[in-house]
Write a protein that binds this DNA or RNA. Structure first.
Length: 423
RNA sequence: GGAGAGUUGGCAGAGCGGUCGAAUGCGGCAGUCUUGAAAACUGUUGACUGUCAUAGGUCCGGGGGUUCGAAUCCCUCACUCUCCGCCA
């Protein structure tokens, strides 16, 4: 979330940013500033009374110790009105504070200056296009048909044991999946990320820390008996490692990577576009996360962008990079690149990665700070990206590498799979 | 699942209802000594809020209560640990 102090001191910038995002309730800004003023005025009044009460209590203490009980009793009477005021003002504050918080969390992050004004996906900028569509054999099949033909992914079996959106990978399909995970983790390690294995269930506090709660509660699977949530992305546990942490400046940047399954309820999304591997309730993903110095975060974003592209290039996929416009960007992001691979058989682009700089939006909520040379603590910047999400990568490999004689395995994966084709 | 113990500053660990934001040790930082380093010695060292700067205020797991005054007493919730049982 944004910092109230920042909103107060940079009202115009905030309004401009919200405009780029096409944000529908700019009036929130004024409400926040007004309520914040009330909040701080009340706080000041309360502090004054608290100060008075503290002074009186100390005096009474002194008198009691020196045996002047009558004088002490006299002073005690004076505390009554003070206490009443404190009680009243405390109640006021406890009403105002959550109200203010609820307003502030409704504001999205402010876009970086490179982000273009826009409403939706059609306004995104294509900033890079790599290669051409693969040339496919005549009767090219979409991946779900290839999956059935070679018996490597079984959607029906998943339906039987769990439900739709939980595929079963079989034989070489399972092996290819594992190969991709290893390839992505090894690559991330070479790039300087530290591999982490984190829990796949998180508590409520972690859900709040990265902002899935309270708003997107319906998107997560909830183990109610223990009040734990299945993670929708590794971002949740990996970023929460740094909740309530004050780092040393020399610890930055922190680069972590983790492979996890991801669980998403995807309530309400059905239809042709979710066929096959396009949209699942459970899928695998390798995530990269960085915590860095505010001055370095855009440099870092470009590094991460390039890194993700290097993976796609090694896999030999036709892809493009989008810089999302204000209206299409996630709520918490300041700038996002989406990578999309071309699905030759479906003839559409599939999003396989999203790399974002959240600036201080996450770290403010997480209380993730660092202490610089000056001794002042300040919020760190956080970034993350998928590197990569497996199902659509798998889908596009199946589709793009299909031949008359089976599906070829990209060379870079062969040392992980141990075979060079699926037939 | 049963029984018990605990939760205090970066860590370890003390704390009588008032003089406690909190002893002490370690760690960190600065200095003395040294060619340099180590050791030793000296000093310093929490976060948040607030102010132009002071001042002031809040924080001893969370919430509530008793009291003029709570880290300390009471209630409640959460979490952690130990032992037993079960078990990958």
């Amino acid at each position: 979330m944004l910092q109230v102090n920042y909103i107060r001191e940079n009202k115009e910038k905030v309004l401009e940013g919200l405009k780029v995002r096409n944000f529908k309730q700019p009036e929130l800004v004024n409400e926040i500033i007004a309520l914040d003023q009330v909040f701080r005025a009340t706080q000041t009044q309360l502090n004054d009374f608290e100060s008075e009460a503290n002074t009186l209590a100390k005096q009474i203490g002194d008198l009691m110790r020196t045996g002047k009980k009558e004088e002490a009793d006299l002073l005690k009477q004076k505390t009554t009105s003070c206490k009443e005021n404190i009680k009243k003002l405390t109640e006021e504050i406890s009403e105002i504070e959550p109200k203010l918080y609820n307003l502030v969390v409704q504001l999205p992050n402010l876009p970086y200056h490179l982000v273009k004004n826009g409403v939706g996906a059609e306004d995104n900028e294509v900033v890079y296009l790599h290669d051409k569509p693969a040339e496919l054999p005549k009767n090219a099949l979409p991946h779900w048909e290839l999956a059935a033909k070679y018996d490597i992914i079984d959607f029906e079996l998943g339906v039987k044991i769990t439900g739709a959106g939980f595929p079963v990978y079989k034989g070489k399909g399972a092996k290819l999946q594992r190969a991709l995970i290893n390839f992505f983790l090894d690559s991330a390690t070479e790039e300087g990320y530290k591999e982490m294995q984190v829990p796949h269930l998180v508590n409520e506090a972690s859900g709040f820390g990265t902002g899935q709660l309270p708003d997107k509660e319906g998107q997560m699977y909830h183990a109610t008996v223990d009040n734990l949530y299945l993670i929708p992305t590794a971002e949740v546990p990996v970023t929460n490692l740094y909740r309530d942490v004050i780092l040393k400046e020399e610890d930055l940047p922190i680069k972590n990577t983790a492979y996890t399954p991801c669980f998403r309820r995807e309530a309400g999304s059905y239809g042709a576009h979710v066929r096959g591997l396009n949209r699942l309730h459970q899928f695998d993903k390798v995530e990269v996360v960085q915590v860095c110095h505010p001055e370095k975060s855009y440099e870092t974003l470009e590094q991460m962008n390039n890194y993700v592209q290097s993976l796609l290039q090694k896999l030999g996929l036709h892809y493009r990079v989008l810089r999302l416009c204000g209206g299409d960007m996630g709520f918490t992001s300041a700038m996002t690149y989406d990578m999309e691979v071309w699905s030759a058989a479906q003839e559409r682009w599939l999003e396989v990665s999203s790399v974002s700089n959240f600036e201080t939006y996450q770290s403010n909520r997480l209380k993730l700070r660092f202490k610089g040379a000056t001794g002042k603590t300040q919020l760190a910047h956080t970034l993350n990206g998928s590197a990569l999400a497996l199902p659509r990568i798998l889908a596009s490999i199946l589709e793009n590498y299909q031949t008359e004689n089976g599906i070829l395995i990209p060379e870079v994966l062969q040392k992980y799979t141990g075979f060079d084709r699926i037939d």
